[in-house]
Write a protein that binds this DNA or RNA. Structure first.
Lengths: 209, 209
DNA sequence: AGAAAAAGCGAGCGATTGCTCGCATTATGG
DNA sequence: CCATAATGCGAGCAATCGCTCGCTTTTTCT
């Protein structure tokens, strides 16, 4: 609180070409994470790959964690863009169609950058955890709102519990589909998994036994 | 292949008190992981906390990765013991009871050492990945075998796909229950989650639409 | 008892890491 | 056109890391 390093604001926004520098640094971080792993991701290496000096790096980022956090945020934002769009698109659909769409999107979202996703999932640093939780809460709220709006088509259920379970299950299937089989994913199998997951969720949400 | 360091077998089994040394090292690694995080987990620190010299550490473990892998293995083995026992216990039960039991055990298993589980889940090192996959395959095989034995009570389904989805969903719920809410877990809510998850899975597996 | 093997020790090496600071280069605006 | 700010630079320091090696202590076996 007291000090803020007057002469060296450490982390400053950009006005001109500095934007490019920041982008290059984040992009380099992502590439190194994917191609060399988290352990090899040092600030010196990042600067080198980005074609930027370490001095410049520290003008925009307070440390390695900040770089990695930026990569994570970028990736999460891409995913969230898909998810948000899907939830809007789905707002007026009946649950069967909606669930199918959402499950499909969940898998697509996890497939945006499989290798990066894998690294981020497997070698989590430490920071950014709060942000991830924030995204989680947002998804929960959005899905909950949809389920609430379609209450009439469903059995009596505890909205929060149902949302929690549906979101967890969907994420898990998407996550495992991308992480376990990775590259070799016959489109047929994916469709099959979407069908089955949809069946499970719809069966769980609908009225009737 | 060529060299094996004859005078320094590096990683040797134990005969007497050395057992205690190895245990102390693994236990110290776990404690540091939980209390100081993965970054602070250096071989020097591990030796210090274990009350053992670095020299001794390197007599039994080829490096930091091996220590962490040992902790992971230990933890996974504890979990697998519960899971294996549950699957035996459940072998003769009808699906409703069996699923309820398995979901309960999944949550219990994730609760063995919540903080350690969290660290291992959040700050994975790199090694041991193969072992984790091996456990995953074992669970898959066991569950698949159970489902196969109860085929008559269920609708026609692709065993592998159904197993994959059920295991993924159950693990995800258990995982999130432990990681998200962590300490504050009213027993009532847990029961509720078990009930709902069971309902979803049984509804998915049973015959009838 | 004594010798050999097993276990334990820790100073200290070479390498790497995160990061600073003084200076050079480029843009902006009066 | 030049003063001032913004941006970029990179040698190099202090700290830390993983790890070795020569040595002492303890145990085992005869």
């Amino acid at each position: 609180m007291a000090r803020k390093a007057a002469t060296k604001p450490r982390k400053k926004a950009s006005q001109e070409r500095s934007r490019a520098t920041v982008d290059a640094l984040v992009e380099a971080t992502a590439r190194i994470l994917v191609r060399e792993g988290f352990e090899k991701t040092s600030t010196n290496r990042i600067a080198e790959v980005a074609g930027v000096s370490i001095g410049s790096l520290y003008q925009y980022f307070p440390g390695k964690e900040a770089l990695v956090a930026a990569v994570i945020d970028r990736h999460n934002e891409e995913i969230m863009a898909l998810v948000r769009a899907a939830l809007v698109e789905v707002a007026e659909m009946p649950i069967e169609k909606a669930v199918r769409r959402l499950v499909t999107v969940a898998i697509e979202a996890h497939r945006i950058r499989p290798e990066l996703h894998r690294v981020l999932a497997e070698q989590i640093p430490r920071a950014g955890k709060l942000d991830v939780e924030a995204y989680g809460r947002e998804v929960h709220a959005l899905v909950r709102a949809y389920l609430d709006s379609r209450r009439k088509e469903m059995r009596k259920l505890d909205l929060d519990v149902a949302t929690f379970i549906c979101v967890s299950a969907t994420e898990a299937v998407a996550h495992n589909v991308v992480l376990n089989q990775a590259e070799i994913l016959p489109e047929k199998v994916v469709r099959r998994l979407v069908d089955e997951t949809t069946r499970m969720l719809v069966g769980y949400l609908r009225r009737s036994a």
